[in-house]
């Protein structure tokens, strides 16, 4: 399963590259990721939460790193869902900032595990990547993921309808939203 998504961020390519290059920033806008930790030169350890209550972990190596321009990575060793990704940054015309292009590829296993993994990545995986990039743009341009009363969950956004009503959160709802 290959996916390509793009957005334009009104920041310099070097800023956008720097933010992405610090892999620990990725969980700020990527729904599934809990953490990405640097474990050595060009080596990272990724942790994600699956909907069936499991924590999914894998190691990755950085396979390409061109400052201000592109970064690529791929999972190594044992992984439930072998995956690889590449992001590259292109100056947008007329000083409009930076075009961010992302390609992700997942190798879904067959059988029950494959079905579970597909569910984990959502019914519309491409929509999720689009939403991840939208949140990346929000973080880069405004400092945080945007929240409304109807959709207060930040990066844990759930798009299904009905949402909660567009009225202020109760204390309990607020505690739940900011729990993680």
């Amino acid at each position: 399963m290959d996916m390509l998504a793009t957005t334009t961020v009104r920041r310099e390519p070097s800023d956008v590259y720097d933010f992405w290059h610090d892999f620990a920033n990725l969980p700020r806008f990527m729904t599934h990721l809990d953490s990405v930790v640097e474990t050595g030169p060009n080596a990272t350890h990724w942790t994600a939460t699956a909907p069936f209550g499991q924590v999914v972990e894998w190691d990755a190596e950085t396979t390409e790193d061109v400052p201000g321009s592109s970064i690529a990575w791929r999972s190594v060793g044992e992984s439930l869902v072998p995956n690889q990704g590449k992001v590259w940054f292109v100056p947008a015309p007329g000083g409009q900032g930076t075009e961010v292009h992302v390609v992700l590829a997942y190798h879904l296993p067959g059988g029950a595990i494959g079905k579970a993994a597909a569910k984990y990545f959502g019914e519309e995986p491409h929509q999720q990547l689009d939403d991840d990039l939208r949140r990346f743009k929000q973080v880069m341009e405004t400092g945080e993921v945007v929240r409304s009363d109807g959709a207060p969950w930040g990066k844990r956004a759930r798009h299904e309808f009905p949402q909660r009503a567009a009225q202020p959160l109760s204390a309990d709802e607020r505690a739940e939203v900011f729990a993680s």
């Binding site: 009104r10 939208r134 929000q138 798009h159």
Partner: peptide, 16 residues
């Protein structure tokens, strides 16, 4: 930046 505020690209969490 283009003063087209009602087309803001970030303020709608339901942009999708």
């Amino acid at each position: 930046a283009a003063e087209m505020y009602s087309c803001c690209e970030n303020s709608n969490p339901n942009a999708a």
